[in-house]
């Protein structure tokens, strides 16, 4: 009996120590992978930043008018942002590799699913981010134009613009991750939204001045003699 217990104990311990012996290197491997991943990610980030700097990525954005849309103080520069994002994606990937190196089956499945989702999430995030910016921008542009054109309800107008764009953007983002399958509403929203996005983009970016003038004409027909021939210059 005692022998059995001892044997079992020894076996179990042996097994355990074998498992531990087996697991420890994996853990070590995981740690190493994570650490190396961190370093690799950092290097990738540094290189990427250099490359972006070299490519004048920021000014590219600037000329596209996107930097202007973002409040300067709230966000780092676009190249910095992208570099950081890539850093985290690379590192998290390494972490997951590391975890899968542990050999836990259930985890591995989840991880592979995560890997499939990564690009989708990434794209969705970008859509959401840019979309919200655009919504914000377009709404403010509408508000200002409406006020300067002395139209009746600027805030309402601006709210409508913002609402439509946000709905559209959220729908697009969810669609990306695959959470809103087959909903007719979504299809409709996309259709309607695309229309409005087009308009909003046109108003917001394509021809800010033209759009403003159209707006003013549209909403302030009675505004003709507003300045009364006064020359401000």
């Amino acid at each position: 009996m005692g022998d059995f217990i001892i044997k079992n104990l020894t076996d179990t311990l042996g097994n355990f120590s074998a498992m531990v012996m087996e697991f420890l290197p994996r853990l070590l491997a995981m740690t190493i992978i994570i650490v190396v991943g961190g370093v690799v990610a950092w290097i990738v980030k540094a290189i990427l930043r250099r490359i972006l700097l070299f490519l004048r990525f920021n000014s590219l954005f600037e000329s596209a008018g996107i930097t202007q849309m973002m409040p300067k103080t709230a966000l780092p520069s676009p190249s910095d942002l992208l570099a950081r994002l890539v850093f985290w994606v690379v590192w998290v990937s390494f972490m997951l590799f590391g975890v899968s190196a542990l050999g836990v089956l259930a985890l591995q499945e989840e991880i592979s699913r995560f890997f499939l989702l990564i690009p989708q999430i990434f794209v969705a995030l970008v859509i959401l981010f840019v979309g919200l910016l655009i919504a914000n921008f377009a709404a403010r542009a509408t508000l200002l134009a409406a006020v300067n054109a002395n139209s009746s309800s600027p805030r309402l107008l601006s709210g409508v613009v913002r609402f439509i764009i946000v709905i559209l953007v959220v729908t697009m983002a969810l669609e990306r991750i695959g959470l809103g399958h087959g909903v007719v509403l979504v299809a409709f929203a996309i259709f309607f939204g695309a229309l409005m996005l087009g308009l909003a983009l046109a108003f917001g970016l394509g021809g800010r001045d033209v759009a403003r003038r159209i707006l003013e004409k549209r909403f302030a027909e009675d505004n003709k003699e507003e300045e009364d021939g006064m020359s401000h210059l």
Partner: peptide
């Protein structure tokens, strides 16, 4: 400081 879009 470009607190918002400069044109705005």
């Amino acid at each position: 400081h470009s607190v918002i879009n400069r044109d705005h």
